[in-house]
């Protein structure tokens, strides 16, 4: 029995482990960027990141049309920023970008440059926003993974799993 215990103890104490490797996180989204373009206006880029303490503000003009491009980035490693947008576009069938507005009357639809899925449903990765009266409010940007259906006027109708849900403040100027 003594021999056995010594044997065990030797195996125990001769064991060393190699240092673990850093995990390369592949699906993380840390930043959501909205880019607004409109005729006669300077491009506007608004960025949501986990580091912010309050929601970033989008400033728009009333009664105007904007083309809005959404992009999703993984900036967890500042030296190796990954653009997740390409992956989302490639899997248009499994994804849906969606917006919900509160406090301000803004309508949105697909932009000419939008990506369509195999059933010709807009992904809204590039959308067209129309503002009307001035005011302030917020927009919630969603990226939905594997929605149950692709046509809905509210978030609940899409079902699926929420991959992104971030809020921006909106100020619609006169």
């Amino acid at each position: 029995m003594h021999i056995a215990s010594i044997l065990i103890l030797t195996t125990v104490f001769s064991c060393t482990k190699t240092d673990p490797e850093l995990v390369d996180e592949q699906e993380l989204i840390t930043s959501v960027i909205l880019t607004f373009t409109s005729d006669g206006e300077e491009d506007q880029q608004v960025r949501w990141t986990t580091q912010l303490n309050e929601n970033p503000t989008i400033t728009l003009n009333s009664n105007s049309e904007y083309e809005v491009a959404v992009s999703f980035l993984d900036e967890s490693d500042p030296t190796d920023v990954e653009d997740i947008t390409t992956e989302v576009k490639m899997e248009a069938d499994e994804h849906q970008v969606f917006f919900e507005f509160s406090g301000v009357p803004i309508e949105f639809g697909q932009a000419v440059s939008d990506v369509l899925d195999t059933n010709q449903n807009p992904l809204y990765i590039n959308s067209l926003w129309s503002t009307s009266s001035p005011g302030s409010g917020a927009v919630r940007v969603y990226l939905i993974h594997e929605p149950i259906q692709k046509n809905s006027s509210d978030r609940n109708g899409f079902g699926g799993e929420t991959d992104v849900e971030v809020d921006f403040s909106i100020l619609v100027k006169d």
Binding site: P20, E21, L22, V23, D24, E25, Q26, E27
Partner: peptide, 9 residues
């Protein structure tokens, strides 16, 4: 814990 998962351990 295998790091090849692409997800934080």
């Amino acid at each position: 814990s295998n790091p090849e998962t692409g997800v934080k351990r």
